[in-house]
Computed example of a mutant assay.
Amino acid sequence: MRTHQLNKSRKLYRSVNTTTRHRSNNPGAEYRWERNRKKADDELLVNRETMHGRQNRGRDYTPLFYFLIKQIGKPWGDIFSEVCGRLDTTEPVFWLVALHEHQQRDLVCIGESSFYPGLFVDENGILQQVNPSITGKDVKVTCRCCTHTYIGEPVPWVD
């Protein structure tokens, strides 16, 4: 029972070191140059902002994607309520899960070369896979320099 409780409280994302070599930090605009430019009506009461930017960089949501794939066939309400308590934001859930029919895709590419099956919530509120016949063989490898994966398994290059 205790092990089950520990697993429920674990986060569904990992922090990634974004300062290592060959890792783009996606820096965006220099927030430090614009944070104190905002003018207040009263120059004596200038509100200063912190150095903290607006983006959460360095998040790896792979544990979330594996969790969602394991939950296929279960009620969406239960899954989503558990996920909400274990994530910093719910946005990555909907990278994989389509709530509307026009959003459904057989394969979903996360990043440059990580592929996962598309998921959707059916009319009964059950999480389903869009196309259950999709396998790693359906992933089109576009270049030889990248390692393409389907649910974490490498996809071989086919000539």
Rank of each mutant, 00 (worst) to 15 (best):
L6A: 11
L6N: 11
K8D: 11
K8M: 11
K8S: 13
Y13R: 02
R14N: 15
S15T: 15
N17Q: 11
T18S: 05
T19Q: 11
T20N: 03
H22Q: 14
R23M: 14
R23G: 04
S24Y: 02
S24A: 13
N26A: 13
P27D: 06
E30T: 10
E30P: 03
R32I: 03
R32Q: 06
R35H: 11
R35M: 09
N36V: 05
N36Y: 15
K38P: 01
K39A: 12
D42C: 06
D42I: 03
E43W: 02
L44Q: 10
V46M: 12
V46T: 08
N47K: 14
R48N: 12
E49F: 15
M51H: 13
M51R: 12
M51W: 11
R54M: 08
R54S: 04
R54T: 08
Q55K: 05
R57K: 08
R57M: 03
D60F: 07
Y61G: 09
P63Y: 09
L68Q: 01
L68R: 01
I69F: 13
I69P: 01
K70I: 00
Q71E: 09
Q71Y: 06
G73Q: 11
W76P: 00
F80C: 03
F80E: 01
E82N: 10
V83K: 02
C84Y: 11
C84D: 11
G85H: 06
D88H: 09
T89P: 00
E91Y: 01
P92I: 05
F94W: 10
F94T: 00
F94H: 05
W95V: 05
W95T: 11
V97C: 03
A98H: 09
A98M: 04
L99A: 10
H100N: 14
E101A: 14
H102V: 07
Q103G: 00
R105I: 00
R105M: 05
D106A: 12
V108Q: 07
